[in-house]
């Protein structure tokens, strides 16, 4: 349940920004989460609903941009959509690759009122 830690980290970032901008409330937040970031989305939403009542993020509009993981095969150079860490290159079957994207775990933007 590290998703709760992630939610609390987001809350901390939001509180910090709210203070910095002397705002009253966060009205909307946009996150970017890669499919290989290690976040179970059901657990994330559960933690989000559980942790935020009474906080500056309560009732704020949450938008999550999911980023599909992509890998570049180290053997043949083929770029493919990675569904699992142990997914072989569809072109040559190699497991050696470097992940191009899919580990994102970011707060993209906040709207403060």
């Amino acid at each position: 349940m590290h998703e709760l830690s992630i939610v609390l980290n987001i809350l901390e970032i939001a509180e910090h920004q709210l203070k910095e901008h002397a705002g009253n409330k966060v009205d909307a937040i946009e996150l970017e989460i890669g499919t290989m970031a290690g976040i179970e989305m059901d657990a994330f939403h559960f933690a989000w609903d559980a942790a935020l009542p009474g906080s500056v993020l309560e009732r704020c509009k949450l938008t999550i941009h999911s980023v599909d993981a992509k890998a570049l095969c180290s053997e043949c150079g083929y770029m493919y959509r990675m569904l699992e860490h142990y997914m072989a290159c569809p072109a040559c079957g190699s497991f050696r690759n470097s992940m191009i994207q899919g580990k994102e775990l970011k707060v993209n933007s906040l709207e403060i009122i």
């Binding site: 920004q17 002397a22 775990l105 970011k106 403060i112």
Partner: peptide, 20 residues
């Protein structure tokens, strides 16, 4: 610096685990 009644959009692009 903004007037308090405005809506501010903060483009942050910050890693959630940046502190860790």
């Amino acid at each position: 610096h903004e007037v308090p009644t405005s809506r501010i959009v903060v483009d942050l692009e910050m890693d959630i685990l940046h502190k860790n």
